[in-house]
Amino acid sequence: MLLGRFTRVVYENDGITVQFITACEQEKTQLFLLASNLTDSALYFPYPVLDNRAQEHVMREEHWRFSEALAHTLDRDEQHFREHCIALLQSRLTPGAQLLDPACSTGAFMASIARALPHTRCTGADCSSSMVDQARARHRLPNLEFHHRAAQATLEPAAECDVMFLRFLNAEVMSRDQAQHLLVLLLKQLKPGAMAIVFGHTPVLPNIGYWAGVLDLNLMSSLAARPGQLELFECYVLQSPTD
């Protein structure tokens, strides 16, 4: 418990109450530092957001149509992911490495990667034509291209990439069943030595550790924190074994 020592859960007609003994600031700081230094640490979110029918809450399709307000929010909220991924990959990739984002949204994330890693070839795809149109108009870089297609239609590019970013297998974006299906579908395409980096604005839905074992992938880490920042966020890094 990041808030303190867990005592019990109480189920009531109006919902669930989690009871705990609040930790002091020093204890919380120690917990964050300890977790960030343990390779098997992971963040776990046990309770999904539910709609008024007590089903998993999933944003409607129109929510993902491009707007300046949405672009600003997504851009602001993913800054820590960009910084971490750039630092992680800078010394790991050889010239010509291919990077793929099968659900690139506004394209800002892939554009930041392409600028920071100019020796790579970056590709973004999205099922929203309005997002792809804006991505193409806003982010014109020689090592970056965008395509209009659904994530499940990127199997061939996924089989060729060296790094695949999975930023959409998350709560409120899709259901748990959909997320699990797409995760397995895409991870099965990884070529030997390729990496998959899984994160997002909301909790990651599939059990990444379980599927890493099933698919014989090396789970290198499950969470991250930027240097000098007292923070923790989900960021699963998987790698396909070499021959």
Rank of each mutant, 00 (worst) to 15 (best):
P95D: 09
P95M: 08
G96C: 05
G96F: 08
A97T: 05
Q98Y: 04
L100C: 01
D101Q: 13
D101G: 07
P102D: 03
P102C: 04
P102V: 01
T106M: 07
T106R: 10
F109C: 09
M110K: 04
M110N: 00
A111E: 06
A111C: 11
S112Q: 11
I113S: 00
I113Q: 05
I113M: 15
R115Q: 14
A116M: 11
H119I: 07
T120M: 02
T120E: 00
C122F: 03
C122W: 01
T123S: 02
D126P: 02
C127F: 09
S130W: 05
S130V: 13
S130G: 07
A135Q: 06
R136I: 12
R136G: 00
A137K: 14
A137Y: 08
R138K: 14
R138G: 06
R138Y: 12
H139Y: 15
R140Q: 15
P142W: 13
P142C: 09
N143V: 09
E145Q: 14
E145D: 12
E145W: 04
H147K: 08
H147P: 00
H148Q: 12
R149K: 15
A151W: 02
A151D: 00
A151S: 12
A153S: 08
T154C: 15
T154V: 07
L155G: 08
E156D: 13
C161N: 03
C161F: 06
D162M: 06
D162V: 06
V163Y: 01
M164K: 06
F165S: 02
F165T: 07
L166R: 06
L166M: 15
R167M: 13
F168G: 08
F168T: 01
F168L: 07
L169M: 14
L169N: 05
A171Q: 15
E172A: 14
V173S: 13
V173Q: 14
M174F: 03
S175R: 13
S175Y: 02
S175P: 00
R176V: 06
A179T: 09
H181F: 08
L182R: 03
L183Q: 07
L183M: 15
L183Y: 06
L185M: 14
L185D: 09
L185N: 13
L187W: 10
L187E: 04
K188Q: 15
Q189P: 03
L190W: 08
K191E: 03
